[in-house]
Amino acid sequence: MKKKVLLMGASGSGKTSMRSLIFSNNPASLTARLGATIDVEQNHVRFLGDLILNLWDCGGQDAFMDSYLTTQRSTIFQHVGVMIYVFDIESQGMNKDLEYYRDCLEGLKQYSPEAAVFLLVHKMDLAREPKNVVFEKKKRELEEASGEGAVTVFGTSIYDESLYKAWSSIVHTLIPNASVLSRHLTTFAAACSATEVVLFERTTFLVIATSSPVTPPSLPGATAEQTDLDRHELNPTRYERTSELVKAFKHSCSRVREEFHSLEMELYDFTAVLDEMTRNTYVLVIVHDPTIETAALKLNIRMARRKFEELQGDSLLS
């Protein structure tokens, strides 16, 4: 199953940089060497088993943009699963950016009316303090420019974990039945006496599913597991921080021609195992019960592998 993902935005807004971080495991410091993208660079990224992301990194110089909107219009905008539009927080030409953005929305409406739209307010590391105020203002401005279509806005930077948060949630929308995976992770967590279990895609380390679906705790439907998790008040940025940490370490390993394979930790505050779950995924099991040993967790992971291979196949077929 192929999903087409459009990556658009003004030249220099950071599209190729984020692609090279997420999909090629390059460090942020190397992005300064990237040249402007000429026309469209297409990438096929095998994401989960049979799910292939067909990433269209569209060079943002005016001449290219004009051609996307005219002669290449149908090629660009048809069969789109997701459009990601990147706005540089420091952009000097916001009016022009918005104009191109609205034109792209039009194209999308015409050829792929079902496509999801994500807006990234990028280079947040450069934003003036207070950053959240700057971001909220930008977000409102973008939501207004988007008309009635539903859009999701994230603030991102290649220098921190925010990029993983945004991309995890983008990719999440492309996985049919992610909720089934989630339910099985909840069962698996209980079997491990784990506080939480997180499933990552193997190469990007984006979060695919967790044992704790995000339901506001106030909802009556909140399960016992969720209230138990609430009690721990875990850091809300833990998923994306984990992606970032592991990606950075994977990069360190590759520099010495080693390949990261698995990690286990018995630290003061928790015990954790990060190991292969299926051919395309890694699982992180977090335990706060000090009597549980990593060896037990590893055994449980080994026993759960077959089930998850099957599930993963299923979740993609439907």
Partner: peptide, 9 residues
Amino acid sequence: FGTLYKSAA
């Protein structure tokens, strides 16, 4: 990682 999954309980 040491502090990332620290529990308040």
